[in-house]
Amino acid sequence: MRERGEPVHFADAPFAMARLDGGGIETAYFDYALSPLRDEDSSIAAVLNITPETTGRVVIEQRLAKAQAALAESEAKVRRRTVDLEAALNAKTLLLHEVDHRVKNNLTMIGALLRLQSRQIDDPVITAKLDAMMERIDALATVHRRLYQSDDVTKFDIAGFAESMASGVIGASGRGDIKLVVDIEPIEVQSDYAASLGLILNEMLTNVIKHGLNDGRSGTIKLSARGNGADYVLTVEDDGHGIDLDKKSDGLGRTLISRLSKQAGAKVTWDRLEPGTRVTLTMKSVH
């Protein structure tokens, strides 16, 4: 400074200082601001030294820097862990899709074998029972097909499945005099219950064809699906003969519906209409 005559500033200069209480050496930090004081002839007569201590601020900044470095390391670990979990999830999803695909293929093969066997049987009663069993197998195969085609293996759009199944059941019946009216919104349930709910819907829809609109009776099937707070409600309604609620049914279809609804935590109710029947399936949402 004496050579150039310019002020000099040292920011946060460290100094090792002995503690007065004998506690050893510790580092303190100071700002040094040196400014020349000149005589009348502009020569430097003295130096003004302003030296405030900055130890407190420097220590806080050092602690903050360490905390930020630790946070950055933690975030890096979280990102690495997230990448690993996403990779594991993708692998699990692929595996589940493969399982659903294979299950669907196996069910399709079983259905084909039953159809071959059915053609060798002349007894119409046995043939009818085999046909009903094949319809249930086809329903399960369709459930697994939709599961392996889904992006989210934890959810199952039961409303979309119901619309597809209703169209399929009517088409398989060969009945051109049955009209399907659909009014649905997406309903996602836990995929764990997909098979049970799929079988329930199969029974609901096939019952309409076999009992409500049998004997050549033309009519309309109305399919609706809506959210209702914490529950989802799916209804199948027809204008057919109508169910006799006073008559106790011991058929396999009603038995399946009763048992499967308990497994899926769902509720099925029947209402007699004039004319026809309404079957309501109430399910818990996935949210």
Rank of each mutant, 00 (worst) to 15 (best):
L85H: 08
A69K: 14
D238F: 03
M134C: 08
I121Y: 08
T154A: 08
D84H: 12
E98N: 14
R2S: 14
G251S: 14
A67I: 06
L180N: 06
L281N: 08
L147T: 01
E163V: 14
K267N: 10
R38N: 01
I221M: 09
R259V: 01
G56R: 11
A141G: 14
P14K: 15
S261A: 14
E203P: 01
M134S: 11
I200L: 05
A139F: 06
A65M: 04
D231R: 12
T235F: 00
L113N: 06
S191F: 09
T206N: 09
L107N: 06
G24V: 07
E98I: 01
S43R: 12
T93H: 10
S224W: 08
Q62H: 09
A112Y: 05
E188C: 07
Q190H: 13
D21A: 04
T277Q: 11
D123Q: 07
L245H: 06
E274H: 13
G265V: 01
S43M: 02
L130C: 03
E98D: 09
F156V: 04
D239I: 12
Y232C: 03
L281R: 13
M17W: 14
R217Y: 01
Q117H: 09
T206Q: 10
A88R: 11
L89C: 01
T235M: 10
R19F: 03
Q117P: 00
D244R: 13
L180I: 03
V47I: 12
V286W: 15
D122F: 06
R38P: 00
A87W: 06
D246G: 15
R272W: 01
T108K: 08
D246M: 08
D246N: 15
L281G: 03
L114M: 13
D192R: 13
P52E: 07
A225C: 06
I44L: 03
T108Q: 09
I257F: 07
A46S: 12
K267V: 07
I110F: 10
D12G: 08
T220H: 04
N202I: 00
I209F: 03
T51K: 12
A76L: 12
V8F: 15
K77E: 15
R63D: 04
L94Q: 11
I126F: 05
K179P: 00
F15K: 12
R136D: 11
R79A: 15
I110W: 05
Q190V: 07
V268F: 07
S150V: 01
A194N: 08
K66F: 05
N214I: 00
G171E: 15
T282K: 15
E40Y: 04
R38H: 06
V78A: 14
G111M: 02
F161L: 04
L252R: 10
L223I: 05
G168W: 11
D21L: 06
S261I: 02
L130E: 02
T269S: 13
D12T: 07
G160Y: 06
A18E: 13
R81T: 13
E188H: 12
T108L: 06
A76V: 03
K247V: 01
M133R: 12
K92C: 01
N90W: 09
D215P: 00
V83M: 10
E98W: 04
L201D: 05
G176P: 00
G168D: 15
W270G: 00
